[in-house]
């Protein structure tokens, strides 16, 4: 139930914030190095980082719960225990993937 609501909420977040940033990123990239500096400044700021980390977590959560929904579309995993296990796993997975990705970007590669 919670994961189902999360699927919708994260989908909406990625649709607006995610595609918004992606569009801004591609457009500003093509405007030259000076214009891109403004984008880089926002992305590097605390608010920018929170937004980006939020989008990546939303993306991973939506991706994993999306796979769960595709499996359920086939009629699989409706048994209560399995269903609940997979639901919890999507959250564990999305938090783990987000943490790993940002640990690599901010800690390892810099």
């Amino acid at each position: 139930m919670v994961v189902s609501i999360l699927h919708r909420a994260t989908g909406i977040a990625v649709s607006f914030a995610g595609l918004g940033i992606l569009t801004w990123w591609l457009f500003t990239l093509s405007n030259g190095a000076d214009a891109y500096a403004d984008f880089a400044k926002f992305v590097g700021s605390p608010i920018g980082l929170i937004v980006l980390i939020g989008i990546t977590w939303s993306f991973f959560q939506h991706l994993l719960s999306g796979i769960r929904h595709l499996a359920m579309d086939t009629g699989a995993a409706f048994e209560l225990r399995i269903n609940k296990t997979f639901a919890i796993l999507t959250i564990v997975g999305s938090v783990l993937l987000t943490a790993l990705m940002w640990f690599y970007l901010l800690g390892v590669r810099k």
Binding site: L19, G20, L22, T23, L26, F27, T28, L29, S30, N31, G32
Partner: peptide, 19 residues
Amino acid sequence: TGAAIALFGLARIAFGVVG
């Protein structure tokens, strides 16, 4: 509109308008 803006930026990069 969003897709058009993103594709426009991408096209400018792909066809070498920006260095």
